[in-house]
Nucleic acid binder design. Structure first.
Length: 284
DNA sequence: ATTTATGTTTACAG
DNA sequence: CCTGTAAACATAAA
């Protein structure tokens, strides 16, 4: 699923593809997924693409910003051609190898050339036009970015002390930490050898410091690998290629498989309504 | 054929 | 305020 490393990968690549280009046309096939007025972005030039948590923002030169959230199955794929059907070298997740396909919900056309396909099998994702001056209220709720200076051991100590919720649930709370989803919360807890069921306020100082390091390391590595394209996962890069971090997963989607660290078996349980994968042998 | 699981965020109930 | 649950949707698996 698109979490911080996946959205960041898409951001970097799209910046190369569309910054400096003008929006010439928008084709909306799924009306509820495009919020705002098309005329507010037509003719505008993309100045910058930024990311906050799992939210992507296209800053335009007319005072507007396009926000994009991919939710579970959203994809943003850029192709250089400006019209017609594009045959991709391989089938896209949840679709065939053509663009557009049955999951294409919206297309943005650029001038002088190129198209951005917004595909989304389950239609949870959205694209929204807002005034750039109103951005603060859109991003106000997010906690610190794991790779930013304000993501410190002291900060984690403070938020963990305040709650008895399971540590994994807290890691995935966007108001507490920005950008971690199911994949990286599970992987970080494995790296830190912490049982995902532990209440956040039960973590010892040493464990908090270890978890802090683990989160940063894993997020960095996952960005280097250009994200995780796991089984049944919609995620692909903006060039339609899969990421590489699925090769490095230690527990996510490894239910029943042997732990890489001890003799244990990876198990899967439900925590806060989602799958938690961990090794009871070495995560305490 | 009908039900359930999938995973992110938000709305809502307690 | 905090916490937990259902819903948004499409599809595959049970």
């Amino acid at each position: 699923m698109p979490e911080l490393p996946e959205v960041e990968t898409i951001r970097r690549e799209l910046a190369d593809f569309v910054v400096g280009k003008r929006i010439s046309r928008i084709e909306v096939f799924s009306a509820k997924q495009f919020i705002g007025a098309q005329k507010d972005i037509l003719g505008a030039k993309v100045r910058k693409i930024w990311r906050r948590a799992k939210l992507l923002g296209f800053s335009l030169d007319n005072g507007k910003t396009i926000l994009v959230h991919l939710k579970l199955t959203g994809q943003l794929v850029f192709v250089p051609s400006s019209n017609g059907e594009v045959i991709m070298p391989r089938a896209l997740p949840f679709a065939d190898n053509k663009l557009p396909n049955k999951t294409t919900r919206l297309i943005i056309y650029f001038s002088p050339s190129g198209r951005l396909f917004f595909n989304d099998l389950r239609k949870f994702g959205w694209m929204k036009v807002v005034a750039s001056s109103d951005l603060e209220k859109e991003t106000l709720e997010y906690g610190p970015e794991p790779l930013d200076k304000d993501f410190t051991v002291a900060y984690l100590r403070k938020i963990f002390a305040k709650t008895g919720r399971a540590i994994k649930v807290v890691l995935m709370d966007q108001k507490k930490i920005a950008g971690l989803g199911n994949i990286y919360a599970n992987e970080a807890l494995f790296a830190a050898r912490i049982d995902p069921r532990r209440s956040a306020n039960s973590l010892k100082e040493k464990e908090i410091a270890c978890l802090h390091q683990a989160i940063r390391k894993i997020i960095k590595e996952a960005i280097e690998e250009k994200g995780t394209s796991a089984a049944d996962d919609a995620y692909i890069q903006a060039n339609a290629q899969p990421g590489g971090y699925q090769k490095k997963l230690k527990v996510y989607q490894r239910e029943g498989k042997p732990c890489f660290r001890c003799k244990g078996k990876v198990v899967r349980i439900k925590l806060g309504g989602r799958s938690a994968y961990f090794c009871p042998g070495c995560q305490k």
